Computed example of a mutant assay.
Amino acid sequence: MLRAATDDDVDLIRQLRNQQANRDVSITSHEIGADEHAAWWAKASVDPTRRVLIYVRDGVTAGVVNFFDLDGPTGSWGFFLDADGLAERGETLPAWIEVMREATSYGFDELGLDLLTGEVLEHNTVVRQMNRRFRFVEGAAEQRGAVTVIPISLRSEDRRQRH
């Protein structure tokens, strides 16, 4: 289940984002401090082109989904999971599949997007494979400092549908 993030979620969002597993696959990999995070939330929570959602699995917060640059029929997204908690419970793969399914459905069905874009680090082969499973198409890689970033995109008509 996805629900809108609130002020009550801010500390947990930062804790999840700062998990080492999430930092290892993020373009911005430093540990995010309280002040930096508070400044981000102050902007994100009132930005009409952004949605910050909490992914809840079996009643437990299990991740965060960000939609941003929402501009009519297009938007970008990204997410991170409670890597530590899900691994401890043996739920990483099912949660990952579920959050991708729910988030893409939200983007296309709730937000009415025709095109959903995002980015993945070149070395993150597991995420790249999952993206392909969900029919995301990779664009040309680009170098950003020390990391290589690959843009991804999915058109509404190309997405996997539940049967």
Results as ranks from 00 to 15, higher is better:
131 N>T: 06
79 F>R: 06
93 L>G: 07
30 H>W: 09
42 A>V: 01
12 L>H: 12
125 T>G: 11
119 E>A: 12
137 V>Q: 15
99 V>R: 00
160 R>T: 02
128 R>M: 05
44 A>V: 01
139 G>K: 09
16 L>Q: 14
82 D>S: 05
124 N>I: 07
23 R>T: 07
101 R>Y: 02
60 V>E: 04
47 D>W: 02
154 L>T: 05
54 I>L: 08
1 M>S: 13
1 M>K: 06
28 T>C: 08
9 D>L: 11
5 A>P: 03
2 L>A: 01
54 I>F: 02
152 I>L: 14
120 V>G: 00
118 G>N: 03
13 I>N: 13
57 R>W: 11
2 L>Q: 05
114 D>F: 04
67 F>G: 02
82 D>L: 07
150 I>C: 06
119 E>L: 02
37 H>Y: 07
158 D>S: 14
123 H>G: 08
60 V>M: 04
65 V>T: 03
36 E>K: 09
51 R>Y: 06
141 A>N: 12
61 T>Q: 01
84 D>M: 04
142 E>D: 11
2 L>C: 05
4 A>F: 02
105 S>F: 04
62 A>M: 02
163 H>K: 10
37 H>C: 04
122 E>V: 05
109 D>L: 11
11 D>L: 15
49 T>P: 08
157 E>I: 13
64 V>Q: 00
97 I>L: 13
29 S>L: 02
2 L>F: 01
161 Q>I: 13
125 T>Y: 00
9 D>Q: 12
108 F>Q: 06
